[in-house]
Design a protein around this nucleic acid. Sequence first.
DNA 1: TGCAAAAGCGGAGAGTGTCTCCGTATAGTC
DNA 2: GACTATACGGAGACACTCTCCGCTTTTGCA
Lengths: 185, 185
Amino acid sequence: MRADARRNRDRIVEVARDLIRAKGYDAVSMDEVARTAGIGAGTLYRHFPTKDALHDAVIEAWADKVNEAVDQAMELDVPARDRLLQWLKDYTAMLTTHQGAAARITASLGVAGSPYEAKCQTYLQANQRVIDALGGQLRPDVQAMQMCRLVGGVAAVADNSELPPEAVSAMLEVLTDGFLAPKAA
Amino acid sequence: MRADARRNRDRIVEVARDLIRAKGYDAVSMDEVARTAGIGAGTLYRHFPTKDALHDAVIEAWADKVNEAVDQAMELDVPARDRLLQWLKDYTAMLTTHQGAAARITASLGVAGSPYEAKCQTYLQANQRVIDALGGQLRPDVQAMQMCRLVGGVAAVADNSELPPEAVSAMLEVLTDGFLAPKAA
DNA sequence: TGCAAAAGCGGAGAGTGTCTCCGTATAGTC
DNA sequence: GACTATACGGAGACACTCTCCGCTTTTGCA
């Protein structure tokens, strides 16, 4: 890759990240990204063929933090319920860091060929690790995909409605208790 | 209202309902609705000033069925858990009848002035009735708004990812057990 | 029945998005 | 310094929501 191309690519991602964080995915147009970055639309689209592809690059960095969060939450010296709740809160917080991301990523779960596929895998594996770590304390039929979807749903609602942390926590507590419940007859 | 206007209005809603049910809200353009109904765009927009307003009219009919569903589920002669689960399933089924509706309605919860405001009120009251009916069996801190959001989140994910009924049921079981759990210390 | 006013109709087009095409400019190479 | 692959920029194609306004139809009334 040519030096100017590399420079432009980095600048695009940086500008897009700031804009999306400030205004939300939907409210940022590709034109605005290009203008703010001081480049032409053609250049932008060569680097990122779709708006989703750009979005994917923007959220790349914090997808890496997911596994750290799993480790931290699971190593806490507290009951399983608290560890699970901590993880769900961390996970929700990460998903809602960028406006509009939660719904898009959650909708891509299990969809082959989506631009967010790699991230979905990361998240699924992270939730699987949580399930493994908490072992028999969870309901026996819980699945990583299910957990991703349920928490993703909460995150999407929280993001969309800009809910205060207490409201999100309260919803996650319901989920937590649901995950911990034994399978009913 | 003039006779031709009434005729056109009814036809628009009918056409829009069929199209949205078949292709999903996002995939149906206002132009397509107008063309299919055999009218001009101006006529369409006189009757429904925005696409959301049209959508609201389309889902009008089944919003009325919500209260029936509450009655039916609460009158069942089964344990509280099964009644709650039945209600959540019915509610989810209604929300996902029209593609794209669940996410839009859930996002409008608590937003003053949204075109879906009346429906949100209906849903909130319905969930409140369920909470009242199940009385002390639910966790003490449960709220109708919270229930609406949690189930709406599940419905939105189910709708987006076109999940099979078993997967939706499994997620609702987690929610059910969460709602039934006593408040943890 | 005939007429005027009110009500409604239709479609061109404004405004805004995503994304494409292609002539032009420039970084890297010998 | 020249040559070529690579990258750039921006006009514009296409799709969508929504507006404006001249024209047509319905309706109430004599």
